[in-house]
């Protein structure tokens, strides 16, 4: 019994310490953004790595999620003769939940892993110590440009993913499932409003902080050579994804009070 409580206590302490470290990194990053000059060259390189290079995978994911969601919605709605409600159901679901979540998870997997691996390799090969010895704070050089690039890229990627999903769902609904285009679009415009899109974009703004802080923290704390880098990379993706899903629930509940659906 004592061993169980010891193990549980160690787990809780480890979790609290982890949260504290991520919070300190967040504080350092905001302080850096407020007090230090931004390295524009690094930021542009990160915008390319995060935004431009993620675009194909995000668009492809958005397209197929939109198409499959349209098909599944139609199959159920068709039973109660609500075929033309497929449009608003797809667009609202994509704007509010599916678009932000799927895009953030794809970016966490692609970019979060790369961030943890790159910073982790720098850590184990003493490059981060070299930065410090050259009087450059690692947060200023490594985290701040990634944060700015992510905060700009993720909402744009999400918007493009949602748009692609809606367009592809329209094509499937009209061309494959035989729904009337005029009614489909009319209902979609009628029931989807700016608040649906705003809710999704506010959430991805929060998710962009989660991806950067969790992944950079894992990279910066990396120890133990190639094995350590591999472990940090895996943990960065897993922790970012879980945090995004948990944060999404609380953000949805909170935003439903501020921006009623």
């Amino acid at each position: 019994m004592t061993a169980f409580f010891e193990m549980a206590g160690r787990g809780v302490l480890g979790f609290v310490q982890y949260l504290g470290e991520v919070a300190l990194l967040s504080g350092d990053s905001f302080k850096s953004l407020a007090t230090q000059r931004l390295r524009w060259k690094e930021t542009v390189l990160q915008l390319h790595a995060i935004g431009v290079k993620s675009l194909p995978v995000v668009l492809l994911t958005g397209a197929f999620i939109g198409m499959v969601f349209a098909a599944q919605t139609y199959f159920q709605f068709h039973k109660v003769r609500m075929d033309t409600s497929t449009g608003p159901a797809v667009s609202i679901a994509l704007a509010r939940e599916l678009g932000p979540i799927i895009t953030s998870l794809m970016v966490a997997g692609r970019v979060g892993a790369a961030m943890a691996a790159e910073i982790g390799t720098m850590r184990v090969t003493e490059q981060i110590d070299a930065l410090r010895s050259l009087a450059v704070h690692p947060v200023d050089y490594l985290v701040a440009p990634r944060l700015i690039a992510m905060v700009i890229s993720l909402p744009l990627l999400t918007a493009m993913s949602v748009l692609t999903g809606i367009c592809c769902s329209w094509v499937v609904s009209i061309e494959v499932l035989g729904i009337d285009s005029a009614y489909y679009l009319h209902n979609m415009y009628k029931y989807t409003d700016a608040n649906d899109i705003n809710t999704g974009l506010i959430k991805v703004f929060l998710f962009s902080f989660i991806i950067v802080f969790v992944s950079c923290h894992k990279g910066m704390q990396c120890e133990g050579g190639a094995e350590g880098v591999g472990k940090a990379t895996t943990e960065a993706v897993v922790n970012s994804s879980i945090s995004i899903l948990i944060a999404n629930f609380f953000a949805t509940m909170l935003l439903s009070k501020i921006i009623p659906p």
């Binding site: 390799t121 720098m122 090969t125 003493e126 490059q127 110590d129 070299a130 410090r132 010895s133 050259l134 009087a135």
Partner: peptide, 17 residues
């Protein structure tokens, strides 16, 4: 400011890849 007075050669050189 103190680090600017110091230069370090690391064991593996630690060049930025």
């Amino acid at each position: 400011p103190i680090r600017r007075k110091i230069g370090v050669l690391f064991q593996g050189a630690a060049l930025f890849d």
